[in-house]
């Protein structure tokens, strides 16, 4: 019992610690590709610390939702963190939720941020919220289908079970549908974390920002919490990418050495994925909003293809 509580607390701490680091690393790699020095990888930590200390300015026609939204979305994302295997696949709360729960938790977080964006009554917030919902409507099914493909192989949607069986299967798990599902999930990750082709994270130009527009009204502590939940979500999506498709090296038993190795492997995988993401960001321009359906239907088709190929291969 105690070890399980310890694991879950350590999981939360690690997630909170690594999340800003990951976005810092991605910004650094992006800067490297753009041949500029770019801020240090710890810059996000400084930003958050600064924000936590600053006073906040709140619009007058705002209701309790504005105050509650950041906290609820942060809580939702953290709960998702309990379920997604990061460095250990034997999570205590793994039975409490599975893939569908994670997707819906992300949806809950997104729901409340969009609600808050409308609350302030500015047209920017409304525009951000409406576009976020539009993107979400396309992202969610694709996300679910892509991980279904893998879940089918394992027979259950329980994430830790999936990562455990796939890691046990070793290299033989890398079959065609496996890769197809990975590419599909990668495109989803771009949309989910608000990266370039779908949304531009680093700009305040109302034409291109979706995620930023929603949190335009926030300042001070609330902005800090929103930023952290965004980063944690990004980390979770990356860990989904890493630990569902390439879970080797994840600790299956509770042993100091195993955990340390798992942490290291996890960090490496995250950095590689971050680099990949940064490369995609620098090489493509932001797509027009109404061309996004084409991009996301590609990922939908890929995940659907992977399911079909799984059924054909295994004669389901």
């Amino acid at each position: 019992m105690i070890s399980q509580i310890a694991i879950s607390i350590s999981q939360i701490i690690i997630i909170l610690a690594l999340a800003p680091l990951l976005s810092g690393i991605i910004k650094k790699i992006k800067a490297f590709f753009q041949i500029r020095k770019g801020p240090s990888i710890f810059q996000p930590y400084y930003d958050i610390a600064k924000l936590l200390r600053k006073d906040s300015v709140i619009s007058e026609n705002v209701s309790w939702i504005f105050h509650a939204a950041p906290v609820i979305s942060f809580a939702a994302v953290l709960t998702a963190g309990l379920i997604v295997p990061v460095f250990i696949s034997q999570l205590p709360f793994s039975f409490a939720g599975d893939l569908i729960a994670v997707v819906y938790l992300f949806a809950l977080a997104r729901f409340f941020t969009a609600l808050a964006s409308l609350d302030a009554g500015s047209s920017f917030g409304g525009m951000g919220g409406s576009r976020e919902m539009f993107v979400a409507a396309m992202v969610e099914p694709a996300l679910m289908l892509s991980i279904f493909a893998v879940a089918l192989n394992v027979g259950s949607t329980n994430l830790s079970l999936i990562s455990q069986t796939v890691s046990a299967m070793g290299l033989s798990a890398v079959s065609p549908y496996h890769l197809l599902a990975f590419v599909a999930l990668f495109i989803i990750a771009i949309a989910e974390t608000g990266r370039i082709p779908v949304d531009n994270p680093s700009t305040h130009l109302e034409l291109t920002m979706i995620h930023e527009a929603m949190i335009l009204e926030y300042s001070g502590k609330q902005l800090a919490i929103v930023e952290i939940s965004a980063m944690v979500k990004q980390l979770l999506v990356f860990s989904l990418l890493a630990n569902i498709f390439f879970p080797w090296g994840i600790a299956t038993k509770i042993s100091a050495v195993g955990i340390a190795v798992a942490l290291l492997v996890f960090l490496i995988k995250i950095v590689i994925l971050g680099a990949l993401m940064a490369m995609v960001e620098t090489s493509t321009a932001k797509w027009r909003l109404f061309r996004l359906p084409d991009l996301l239907s590609i990922s939908l088709m890929l995940s659907f293809l992977s399911i079909v190929s799984f059924i054909i291969v295994n004669g389901g």
Binding site: S59, S122, S123, G125, G129, M133
Partner: peptide, 26 residues
């Protein structure tokens, strides 16, 4: 402490209810 100020209108002087995103726009 937090101050209460009008919603950020990108410099627009007065933001009325009509600037908001209505359901149809959403």
């Amino acid at each position: 402490k937090h101050q209460v100020y009008e919603t950020w209108g990108c410099g627009q002087p007065v933001l009325t209810a009509r600037n908001e995103y209505t359901a149809c726009a959403f």
